[in-house]
Design a protein around this nucleic acid. Structure first.
Lengths: 222, 222
DNA sequence: CAATTAAATGACTGTCGGTCATTAAAATGT
DNA sequence: ACATTTTAATGACCGACAGTCATTTAATTG
């Protein structure tokens, strides 16, 4: 009975179109200022219907976040697939993440939502898990590159890939967040270029990971 | 006329006692789940009165945040006042910040509030500025140590103190946040120790700042 | 001890996330 | 083709809560 399949497809389409509406409203107004009524209107549905597809406003927000992860993950995987050196792969990941934060600023900002449990009180376990799984997939890309880098002699043997991934990713995220909101912050008064900071901090961290041999081929600019 | 002065003092005391109430409720329930009615009850005042002293719930939250900054700033200043080497001062700052995040977790968590403008829609310019000023004061402590470190030959001449301060502080904040919420995250499944990560990342960053001379006296553990 | 000023109150309003009884539409069976 | 059942959609309604304001209470002044 393919009727059921078609039904399933249609349901999925509706879920997507609801996310489309939610996304455009969230992008424009942010989580707090967006209302379910507004999203419903944009989706050309009643508010009640939204709740047939998503349990809460938080869940809708998480749904959009997952879309962001989809994009990011694809970019990350693309960035490491060329057959290049480990160093180059790591640089590519950095660029991919940076470009993502610049081109998909709204998604990038939304990711912060996951970091403060007190702000997603109505989120369902289901969608929280989904988004956590996706963030894990992103991490895995970097962990993998670092692991291979250790095997091929680019990185020192005594570093832990997971540790390093966390350090590099956290650092990049923190600095990129800073860049995103620097205009409304005291930083704008000091003449610091956040892009430079990102580059330097990355170089500093990477340089301490390299083996003596690798340093002969690549010297990060400190 | 000292009557007016006394009035002013009393008003200030009331503001403080309102903050006491707000703090205990916010600590217990977080921003979203706390209600103005509950805070009013705890303060033994009516809700309306709260609004005579603070413009909004967000402002109350910011008021509590400022208290957190007061504590942190004192700890930071204390940590750099002993007459010790630059390196030791930097280590002290790190410890002070770390201890703060552990002993005053609630304040530490609340700081994130400042980072997402979309979550404080009702905050007044006034209190936002106050908290930003305080965060700047915290930064200044580190910037100062690094600046002096360059002068006394501990750190390389070609590093920028502001840049370095941002890098070190951002890194520490990011990792400490991770530690704070690691229990509800995929990290708990990997056997990584976040304290180690904090130590290592700090060591990595600091090691690239040192002059050749300074390295003879202090070798960070990578 | 009025008159005036300042402080405090809490009932009320508007908004909004979420619900559910009801209606509309689609699928199914004969 | 039509009745019956199942599924989808609706929007009026509810409860919670931030924020307001006319009114009351307390303090100050002359």
């Amino acid at each position: 009975m393919s009727k059921i399949e078609r039904k399933e497809r249609e349901k999925q389409l509706r879920r997507e179109s609801i996310l489309d509406a939610a996304e455009s409203v969230f992008f424009e107004k942010g989580l707090i200022a967006s209302t379910m009524d507004e999203i419903a209107e944009k989706a050309e549905l009643s508010k009640g219907t939204l709740y047939l597809y998503y349990r809460s406003k938080d869940d809708l927000y998480l749904g959009v976040i997952c879309r962001g992860f989809d994009i990011l993950i694809i970019k990350l995987i693309e960035s490491v697939s060329p057959n290049v050196s480990t160093i180059q792969k790591l640089l590519n990941i950095g660029s991919a993440y940076y470009n993502f934060s610049q081109k998909h600023t709204h998604y990038f900002r939304m990711f912060s939502f996951l970091e403060s449990p007190q702000f997603h009180t109505m989120a369902s376990e289901e969608l929280l898990n989904e988004s956590h799984n996706q963030s894990k997939r992103a991490w895995d890309v970097i962990i993998d590159v670092i692991s291979n880098g250790i095997k091929d002699g680019t990185f020192r043997e005594n570093i832990d890939p997971v540790q390093m991934a966390i350090i590099l990713w956290s650092n990049a995220t923190a600095i990129m967040k800073l860049k995103d909101r620097k205009d409304q912050f005291w930083i704008e008064n000091l003449n610091v270029d956040v892009d430079t900071i990102l580059q330097k901090s990355n170089a500093m961290l990477v340089s301490t990971m390299l083996t003596e041999n690798a340093k002969r081929y690549y010297q990060p600019k400190l």
